[in-house]
Simulated scan of single mutants.
Amino acid sequence: MQRPIPVLMYHHVSPKPGLVTVSPENFRAHMAWLAEHGWRSLTAAEFAACLAGAPVPKRAVLITFDDGYLDNWVYAHPVLAEFGLHAVLFLITGWIGEGEVRAHAGQGQPVPDVPDHKGAMAAGRAWQDAADPVPLDGAFLRWSEVHAMRDAGTFEFHSHTHSHTRWDKTIADQDARDRALSDDLAASRATLAARLGNGSAHLCWPQGYYDAAYQRVAQAAGFRHLYTTEAGVARGDTDPARIPRIVVKDKPAGWFASRLRLYGNPLTAALYLGLKGRK
């Protein structure tokens, strides 16, 4: 039986509780557990190679983040640096700001206030509607912080589209919808290439939504690895166009350890996911 690769899905690491948010204390406990138990955090390229048939390292995990919130820099980055771990962050490339690097929690100085999930997404929508980048600055990353995390090796960056728009909800005509999605994805790849020198072949769907047309447009745009919010673990036979992930909850290390032991074992992962699929 093929060795599974749990693909962990985070959004916020923040002291403000809320939707898709893990506290800094619990996030540190999760990362400490991985490091202490010999788990290897893969790069996107290593993960892609495993899906293409390369041997899967023992205790391999892919750590992913969605959207690109300021709290990823303030609270997640210093923890990843502390434990020598690496994560993949899917950026909404049109929502990333400009300016100098702000303080993070590993520097022993006051850090910027970060909004909760509702506040961050409201800022993003307001910015998009008004074409004014100012409201985003306190909610999302700056490119200077993206560069700092990349240079530190804590994060690498891929696409979560340019605008985070659900085109299936916005445009009724299929051809017009396909063109809008294609333009959105092209803008995202072009932005990543211009800012980071990497157009990226990895795409995470906003809100986890996709259909056959979405997949077709994404693949035509150059994306080869498409990440979902569907539950499961990746293996060598996983379809790269439909990569499952595991939602990480705001719970302590004991819960996290039980999930990794479950999903990291070929037999228990297959049995558990089989039972979930029959419910």
Rank of each mutant, 00 (worst) to 15 (best):
Q2A: 09
H12Y: 09
V13R: 00
K16P: 04
G18M: 13
A35W: 05
A35I: 08
H37C: 15
R40G: 05
T43M: 11
F47V: 05
C50T: 07
P57D: 06
K58G: 12
V61H: 00
Y69V: 01
Y69L: 05
N72P: 04
V74D: 00
A76Y: 00
A81H: 08
F83A: 05
L85Q: 00
L89T: 05
L91G: 01
T93F: 04
I96M: 05
E98C: 12
G106R: 01
G108D: 07
V111C: 08
V111D: 02
P112M: 05
V114Q: 03
K118C: 07
K118A: 13
G119C: 07
G124F: 04
W127G: 14
Q128N: 09
V134G: 11
L136M: 15
W143Q: 07
T154D: 04
F157V: 03
H160K: 06
T161C: 04
H162M: 08
T165E: 12
T165P: 07
I171Q: 11
A190Q: 15
L196P: 05
N198L: 10
A201P: 01
L203D: 00
P206K: 10
Y210C: 10
A212E: 15
Y214E: 06
V217F: 03
V217T: 02
G222E: 06
G222W: 01
L226N: 00
Y227V: 01
A231E: 14
A234I: 10
I243W: 04
P244R: 11
V248G: 05
D250E: 09
P252N: 14
R261D: 15
P266D: 11
L271Y: 12
L271M: 12
R278A: 13
